[in-house]
């Protein structure tokens, strides 16, 4: 019982912090502050992954995203030495329509999530599916047996992304 309450409290702490930090990424005018908010977002998101029993993903999130990738982000921002005067927000009909669409989507999703049944989803009670769920052993096992094709497809995706980045980063062709 207490563990359920602790889980609830932790969830709200992580959820609100994630959203707050994500807003910081958008609204901060200084790019460095934006990037640091992104680090915080990744960090709190990792907390939610742990609550979801996705330990491996949580660890990777902190190590790879909050650690390695964000350091690169910061390097790039500092090397570019941007000024903190970003573009001034202007309002045009298409922008207003876009904003309305985003708000509409948000309201629709909130309405959908509020209507979800409070009971657990049927398939999460499946004991066979939940055994070992989220452990690195389990993850490795299914990745190299049941998810072989998507796993190999990712290697192709990474190769294409590297080649694309090299081509785009060339100063002039």
């Amino acid at each position: 019982m207490t563990s359920a309450i602790v889980e609830q409290v932790l969830f709200w702490v992580f959820a609100i912090s994630t959203i707050g930090a994500a807003c910081g990424v958008i609204f901060a005018r200084n790019p460095i502050a934006s990037a640091m908010s992104l680090v915080a977002t990744f960090f709190f998101l990792a907390g939610i992954y742990i609550l979801l029993w996705a330990h491996t993903i949580a660890a990777l999130q902190v190590l790879v995203y909050a650690g390695a990738i964000m350091v690169l982000f910061l390097f790039v921002i500092m090397l570019l030495s941007l000024s903190d005067h970003g573009p001034v927000m202007t309002f045009s009909p298409t922008r207003i329509a876009g904003g309305a669409a985003v708000v509409g989507l948000f309201v629709a999703l909130v309405a959908v999530f509020r209507r979800l049944p409070v009971t657990e989803l049927a398939w999460t009670t499946d004991a066979a599916k939940m055994k070992d769920f989220g452990s690195i052993k389990h993850l490795g096992e299914i990745m190299y047996t049941q998810w072989l094709f998507p796993f190999e497809a990712v290697s192709l995706l990474l190769l294409v992304a590297i080649l694309g980045a090299v081509v785009v980063a060339k100063p002039r062709i």
């Binding site: 998507p150 294409v160 785009v168």
Partner: peptide, 26 residues
Amino acid sequence: AEFITLFINLEVMSIATYALTAFLRR
């Protein structure tokens, strides 16, 4: 025929075309 595979392959196609779009930057 599976969502994750579909997404990955969609990205393989898309990232290659993004890079091709910006290939000649004149």
